[in-house]
Design a protein around this nucleic acid. Structure first.
Length: 349
DNA sequence: AAAAACTTCAACCGCCGAGGA
DNA sequence: TTCCTCGGCGGTTGAAGTTTT
C-alpha cells in the first residue's frame, strides 16, 4: 500500500549543511539531474532527508540563483504582486528570475513589511492607515485609554473578531492636526500611550474585505481573530524626530518607486515629496489601494527585469507572461463580462 | 568592553493536492 | 476505493551576525 517512506526522520542529520554535503548534492544533480529526491540521499551518500536535499538545492545550490541583494525594481515588483495575490511566495518568486520563494518571503518579512509599516501602509491590505480610518470615519468611537506596554514599536494596530461587529483599534496616540484641505500632519507625542478605540461597523463583511481581505489567505491559523499592525510615518527610525510628518489626505497619490528607490535611512516623508511634486493630489502612478484588471495585467506582464527600470510594472510588452498569468487574466475577463460592476473603480481585490 | 536588543535567513514544520500502489 | 508518499507550499523557528545601549 503506497510508497515506502522517503527517510527515517529519526536517524537523518539535520541543521546547517556543510560544504561537503553541498558538493555531494551538486555532484549528484550534475550527473543525474533533478528528480526523485527520495533517492538522492542514498545515491549521493548523504544522511539527510530527501525533502531536506530538495530544499537545499532549490533554495541555495541551484546555479541559476542570485545571491545578491534585491534591487529596487524587484522590491517594487514584489510589493505590486503581493498587493494583487497576497503571500503566494512561489508565484511571486516565479516572476523574479533567480529568486526563490524563500528568498522573497524572507525579504518581505524582514524588509518590505517594515518599510510599508513605517510609511503608514498596512502591509496586509496595502492601504494607507489613514485611508482605512477615513473609510470608516463614521464609526462611533469610545476610548478606554488602556496602556499596552508590550508593544513598543507599532504605532497603530487593529484587533478584531471577524464574527463580531465590534472591533478594537489600538492607537499610540499621535498628535494629529489638519494643515489644509489636502494635508493633515502627524507629530510625535512626547508622552505616548496606547489607546483602545472600540468601534461598531455597520457591515462586518465590509470590514473583513477591506481590513483583512488577505488575512485569511495569508494566515494558516484557523483563528478568527486577525491582527494587523501599522506604524505611522512619523516613526521613521534612525532619523531625528521630524517636526511633523505630512501625509496627503489623498494618500493614493504617491508612487512606490519614489519611496523604494530612496534610502530608508535618509528617506524624507515620501508622501510629502509626492505631494510637493504633485500638488493637485492627482494619481501619478498605480493606485495604492485598488487594482483594476488592467493594472493586474500590467503588473504581471511587466516582469522580466530586462532593465527597463522603475516602470517595468507598466511594461506590457514583456513576453514573460506565464500560463498562470494568462489564466488569471482569462478568468478576470470572464468575471468582468459576467459582472460588469466589478469594473467599478471602487472594487478591491 | 560587555550585555542586550535587534536583524537576517537557512532550515524546519506541517499542511495540502496529486498521484502511485 | 483507500491508503500512503511525494513534491510543493506558506508559516515559523532559532542560530549567527550586527547594532545599540
Amino acid at each position: 500500500m503506497g510508497r515506502p517512506p522517503c527517510c527515517d526522520k529519526l536517524n537523518v542529520k539535520r541543521g546547517p549543511w556543510t560544504a561537503e554535503e553541498d558538493a555531494k548534492i551538486l555532484a549528484y544533480v550534475s550527473n543525474h539531474g533533478v528528480g526523485n529526491w527520495t533517492l538522492v540521499p542514498k545515491k549521493a551518500g548523504l544522511n539527510r532527508c530527501g525533502k531536506s536535499c530538495r530544499l537545499r538545492w532549490t533554495n541555495y545550490l541551484r546555479p541559476d540563483l542570485k545571491h545578491d541583494g534585491f534591487t529596487p525594481q524587484e522590491e517594487e515588483h514584489i510589493i505590486n504582486l503581493h498587493k494583487v495575490i497576497g503571500s503566494r511566495w512561489s508565484l511571486i518568486a516565479k516572476q523574479l528570475p533567480g529568486r526563490t520563494d524563500n528568498d522573497v518571503k524572507n525579504y518581505w518579512n524582514t524588509k518590505l513589511k517594515k518599510k510599508l509599516s513605517k510609511m503608514g501602509i498596512d502591509p496586509v491590505t496595502h492601504k494607507p492607515f489613514l485611508q482605512i480610518l477615513s473609510e470608516y470615519g463614521n464609526i462611533s468611537i469610545g476610548t478606554s485609554n488602556a496602556t499596552i506596554m508590550s508593544k513598543p514599536e507599532p504605532t497603530c494596530s487593529v484587533l478584531t473578531g471577524l464574527s463580531s461587529s465590534y472591533s478594537k483599534l489600538m492607537i499610540r496616540n499621535p498628535v494629529m492636526e489638519q494643515v489644509n484641505d489636502n494635508m493633515i500632519s502627524i507629530s510625535n507625542n512626547p508622552n505616548p500611550s496606547w489607546d483602545f478605540v472600540g468601534f461598531h461597523v455597520d457591515n462586518p463583511k465590509n470590514v473583513q474585505s477591506h481590513f483583512f481581505g488577505e488575512a485569511t489567505s495569508s494566515c494558516s491559523s484557523p483563528s478568527t481573530t486577525a491582527f494587523s499592525q501599522f506604524t505611522s510615518p512619523q516613526s521613521f527610525s534612525h532619523r531625528p524626530p521630524p517636526e511633523a510628518a505630512h501625509i496627503p489626505r489623498n494618500s493614493n497619490s504617491f508612487t512606490w518607486n519614489e519611496f523604494l528607490l530612496s534610502d530608508p535611512a535618509s528617506c524624507v516623508d515620501p508622501p510629502r515629496q509626492e505631494q510637493e511634486h504633485n500638488p493637485s493630489g492627482m494619481l501619478l502612478s498605480s493606485d495604492s489601494s485598488t487594482v483594476t484588471p488592467n493594472e493586474l495585467s500590467q503588473c504581471f506582464n511587466g516582469v522580466g527585469f530586462g532593465g527597463s527600470g522603475v516602470n517595468n510594472c507598466a511594461d506590457s510588452t514583456s513576453s514573460s507572461a506565464s500560463s498562470f498569468v494568462d489564466a488569471i487574466l482569462d478568468h478576470d475577463r470572464e468575471l468582468c463580462s459576467q459582472f460588469p460592476e466589478l469594473l467599478d473603480a471602487s472594487f478591491d481585490y
